[in-house]
Structure formats: C-alpha cells, structure tokens
Nucleic acid binder design. Structure first.
Lengths: 215, 215
DNA sequence: AATAAAATATGAACAGTGTTCATATTAATA
DNA sequence: TATTAATATGAACACTGTTCATATTTTATT
C-alpha cells in the first residue's frame, strides 16, 4: 500500500527511444483494459505488466506508482473533454438561444461519456483517489473549464462580476457533471428523462442570469 | 486485498453479552477516529484493533471485513440524515413559501454536514466503495429520502405524475448533496456564496413545478 | 463449589499486495 | 570490436486484510 507522497511527477523517466514509447503505450492500454474488466483496486501491477508483456520493474521505470498509471489515462480523457468544451464555446455559440445552447452542451457531453468506452471506468476510479480536498484534486482541466465558462457567461452578461460568474460556472460544471454521471448508471428510459430534466434545471437557472441576453 | 463478495451480512455475530456490546462500540469509535485522522485506506485493521485495545481476530468476529466497519459507521449518519429530512417534511412544511422551504432545507443540511465532525470523513470514504453502479449502491436511506420527497412534491402539485416527481426528487437530492459536499471543501467566503447560489438554483428549478402552489 | 460445555478472544501464520534494487541485457559510442 | 551508458528484469522486501487453531473467559450442570 502506497504512502501519501507530497507531489510525485507523473512520469519517472521520459521514454527516449521509440521502443520505450511503444512500451508505455502497451502498459497504458493493458492497464485501461484491466481497469475496465475488474476495476482499479482489483487490478494488480503484476497483471498490468503481464498483459503488457513486460516485467513489473519496467512499469516502475515509467510510472512512480500505480496511481500514476490511472492519472495518465485520466489525463487523456480530460484533454478530450476540455477540447469538447472549447469546441462548444466558440464566439458563435454566444449568439445561440439559451435553449439551444443548453441542449447542445448537455447532449454533447452526454454523448461523449457514452461513446468513450474506457471513460467511465477510469473516471470512476479516479474519483476515489481524489478524496482529500476535492478542490486541490480537481484537475487542471476542470479548473480551466470552469474559468473559461465563467468568462463565457461574463461576456454574455457584463453585469456579472468575476466572483459571481465564477460561482455560476462552478455550479453548472459540477451539477451537469454529477447528473450525467448519475444518468450513466440508469436504465435507458430513466436516462432520457434524467437528461431532459437536467436541461430544464440548467435552463431555469441560467435564465435568471442570461435570459435577456440569449434569446 | 478483499475479493468482491456477493452479499456479506453487516455483522458476523450479534454481540450477545454486554461486554461485547461495549467492544463493538470501542471498535467503531476507534475506527472512526482513525478514518478521520489518516483516511480509510491508510487505516490498518491492526491499527483499529490496537486503538480499541482488542486483537485483530476480535474485529473479524463482529465484522466480516474492513468495509463492514465503514458501513456500520455510515449507517449511523444516514439514519441521522434521514431523520433530519423527515423533520423538515412534516405536513406543516407544505404551507411554507417556496423560498422559505428551500432556505430551511438547505440551511439545515448545510448545518448537519458541518456540525457532525466524523460525517465528512466517513461519507467521503463511503463514496469510494460505492463505485459500481451508483444506483445499486445508493443506500436505502437515500432511496427513502428520494421517494418521500417525490411524494411531498406530488402532494403539492397533483399534476405531477409519479415518474416525473420521482425524477425531480432525484435531481434535487443529488444536486443539493453534491453542492453541499463541494462547499465543504471551500473557504468560508466561497462556501457562503456557493450555498446562496445553490438556493437560487433550487428555487429557479422548483418554481417551475411548485411555483403556484407554494407562495 | 467444582466441573463440563459453550462462547468468546487471541495473535501467529497465510496469501497476496505495491514497490525496490542488485543484476542481466540491450543499445550507443569510441 | 570494446567500452560505456541506458534499459529491462524478477526475486526479495515490507506491509496488507484475513483466517483459524489455540487459550481464555463465561455460562450451565452436577
């Protein structure tokens, strides 16, 4: 069992040879497969090494510990998630009606979560490691999404001060993330009504602040 | 590392002698202290036994595994949480204005979370064990709260069918829980504005369904 | 009160984990 | 080709949750 480390680098040694690059990828895909099959806790570093056709020691040459492997996988998904957000918040998006905006964003993230097979398994386990102080643990990418969403809101309604738009953005990101996450573990019918209701929730809320700016 | 068990009873043997009753309590308080001090994962069954002045084996005489100890602690908090909910949803509550109702409920749960010192540490770690299928893991108490809240809403607005009021209740419980949880890890100033904003969110949303029934 | 039987407590032993590090192997350089 | 640096290996280590034969304590019986 690993002891809390102050701040370990995500990689122990940058792979310099192309052969090593491949090995790192093998390790990551092997780990992702196993995390999806039996979960993070039940996945053994020995099992990862075995599936990647590598010795345990090799694993620790690239990753300081088991947690770092999960984080490396999570980073890939967070990057994709951020890019999805960015693509949805171009200047053109500011001229949408509020209803269309909410529809687009929630449908897009819903689709993202369901289309990426490994996303759920990785994200689920990542939450477990982010125990102490959710703020500190909140990944850089989620921070950036909140910041940029706050700026997006402030642009639409300049009456919102920085603090207020930040709080609104934080609530939107957290609530939508939470409800989409919840919907993922429901029957398709429940899933549909939950997502429809999430849109109602966001629409009702944002209408207070952006109602007269966005259709 | 424990293997997934199909469905283990929460207790291995009911303590029949008063001496055993005390021991179980000693074990639980020792475990709670340690979970708060170093977290669930870092807490060793040996450490729990040592602090409770008991042998490791004794621990396993009452609890099938480490997880059961956490669950026993969690049950205490869930019961208290349910009773808080029940106290807030008496027939008299139906005659409150929507604003007063939201204020009361959110303030009460906010106070509950901050006044119970062990609640956060236990709940945080409990979330980690509820990985697979949040629905199945959702404790009986939370289920009951959603059900009764749905009934409360349906009583206020009989136009809401069972399915709809259930979805609304689920969203309210999840969102309020999530945002209060988030606020717990913020600075006092952020905490205040986040809670105020949570009220705005709930008010905006519930107004759609209960606006003409509750003030 | 003494004894037998049942209930309860104990902690060394077990099987398994994440991680390390002296050693062997491979690649780069001279 | 010989030398040196980089990389790969897996047995060994420290520690974990859990068990179970044994010792102790309580209860029941004589």
């Amino acid at each position: 069992m690993s002891v809390k480390k102050s701040r370990s680098p995500s990689m122990r040694r940058q792979p310099q040879q192309t052969r090593s690059q491949e090995r790192v990828n093998h390790i990551l895909t092997a780990a992702e497969e196993l995390f999806m099959e039996v979960g993070y806790e039940q996945t053994t570093t020995r099992a990862i090494a075995a599936r990647a056709k590598v010795a345990v020691g090799t694993l620790y040459q690239f990753f300081p510990d088991k947690e770092a492997i999960l984080k490396a996988l999570a980073t890939r998904y967070f990057q994709a998630e951020y890019q999805l957000f960015a693509a949805l918040h171009t200047p053109e998006a500011e001229s949408l009606s509020l209803g269309d905006y909410v529809d687009r964003v929630i449908d897009a993230f819903d689709h993202f979560m369901n289309s990426q097979p490994g996303y759920r398994a990785v994200y689920e386990q990542l939450l477990n490691l982010m125990t102490y102080s959710a703020v500190e643990a909140m990944d850089d990418y989620e921070y950036r999404i909140v910041d940029e969403l706050a700026a997006f809101f402030a642009r639409l309604n300049p009456d919102l001060n920085a603090e207020k738009s930040q709080t609104i953005a934080l609530i939107v990101v957290k609530v939508v993330g939470d409800l989409l996450w919840l919907s993922a573990s429901q029957t398709p019918a429940q899933q549909r009504s939950l997502i429809a209701e999430t849109k109602v929730l966001m629409l009702s809320y944002l209408d207070r602040y952006l109602g007269d700016r966005m259709g």
